[in-house]
């Protein structure tokens, strides 16, 4: 699961990192968002079930949907 600050929500961390990247000479950089990457294993063979469970986890705990968006990547999907 990738959890990042929502579009439109101020991300001071992303802004500070963007500023630093630019001062290193990476002039082409924009839209930096700093978030979390959460890895876990699920005891199921079904990628569909894995995705569904991951979605529930994000909605209920791993992301605060007031301020964060999430994306899910399922291995073997």
């Amino acid at each position: 699961m990738f959890v990042t600050p929502r579009e439109g929500i101020l991300d001071p961390q992303g802004r500070a990192v963007e500023h630093s990247l630019k001062s290193l000479g990476f002039e082409l950089v924009s839209g930096v968002r700093v978030g979390k990457y959460i890895v876990l294993e699920l005891a199921t063979e079904s990628p569909a079930q894995a995705r569904q469970l991951a979605e529930q986890m994000c909605e209920q705990l791993l992301a605060n949907t007031v301020i964060e968006d999430y994306r899910i990547r399922v291995e073997g999907e």
């Binding site: 001071p12 961390q13 301020i67």
Partner: peptide, 10 residues
């Protein structure tokens, strides 16, 4: 309602 997140100054 709402949420609390990192201070803008970090």
């Amino acid at each position: 309602p709402g949420a609390l997140t990192r201070n803008r100054s970090l």
